[in-house]
């Protein structure tokens, strides 16, 4: 049986570094991320190239997807978040496409690597701090002391708020990466079960139908999880940005 964790190994495609004298090499993860970025750029630009008033199917699809992110941002951040919608949309499309690309058998799921999600989560985290400080100055730290709380409670509440604030990038990153990783491990494990049954003698090998049904079910589930986790990551990004923009 192949190790179900082997699919997550980051391998350089060749031993020659991209920048001579360093150890930066082109890995399978990087290739998938570049590929998805290029695909998204061309797909989106191609989809809306006509700028038709009455959209074709592809343009309508992109418009509806954009509308989804726009609604999310408007509901959570409000009108002040309008400037951020394109960035949030880019983040959403990037994660969704990476997740879905990971569903193709034999592909590499870049979002299952905590480093991928952590970079995005940390970008959101520092954006929140920078935008908050730029918009509200030192008042931004009032985020840790909710208004209308009696003074004795503040001694407990403020450290809690600070911890929960600084823990955000970790939970944000781990939630997506762990979900993607767990799903892909389950896929590989069920595929191994199919092989295990088939290796049996005689009628028992037909038992492979059962794990195959499970494999199919998990494939469906994983597509849903891929879409859902990208949405959740985007939603949490909106929630965190809302703190910076609206300050409660």
């Amino acid at each position: 049986m192949a190790n179900p964790l082997e699919q997550f190994v980051v391998k350089p495609l060749s031993e020659t570094p991209i920048i001579p004298g360093t150890e930066i090499m082109l890995t399978n993860q990087a290739v998938w991320m570049f590929g998805v970025t290029l695909f998204l750029g061309f797909f989106l630009a191609f989809g809306v190239r006509k700028k038709a008033l009455v959209p074709g199917r592809l343009q309508a699809f992109i418009e509806m997807t954009y509308g989804l992110v726009e609604t999310l941002s408007k509901d959570i951040i409000g009108p002040k978040g309008k400037k951020m919608i394109p960035t949030i949309f880019a983040l959403y499309m990037f994660i969704t496409t990476l997740n879905l690309a990971g569903m193709i058998p034999g592909s590499y799921t870049a979002t299952s690597q905590i480093i991928t999600t952590a970079i995005m989560a940390l970008t959101v985290f520092f954006s929140v701090i920078i935008i908050g400080l730029l918009k509200h100055g030192l008042k931004f730290f009032g985020l840790f002391a909710p208004a209308g709380v009696p003074l004795p409670l503040l001694f407990i509440l403020v450290p809690l708020e600070i911890v929960s604030f600084f823990i955000r990038p970790f939970t944000h990153a781990v939630r997506l990466a762990a979900n993607m990783m767990a799903g892909h491990i389950a896929l590989k494990v069920f595929a191994s079960f199919v092989l295990g049954f088939m290796a049996m003698e005689g009628v028992a090998s037909f038992g492979a139908v059962l794990p195959f049904a499970g494999l199919f079910g998990i494939t469906v589930l994983e597509v849903v999880v891929a879409l859902l986790q990208a949405y959740i990551f985007t939603l949490l990004t909106c929630v965190y940005l809302s703190d910076a923009v609206n300050l409660h």
Binding site: M1, L187, A191, V194, L195, L215, T219, V223
Partner: peptide
């Protein structure tokens, strides 16, 4: 073995 494992993933994916 690896190829056969991926093969079943492909079958499931194509069915989906």
């Amino acid at each position: 073995y690896l190829h056969t494992q991926t093969f079943w993933l492909v079958v499931s994916f194509v069915a989906l």
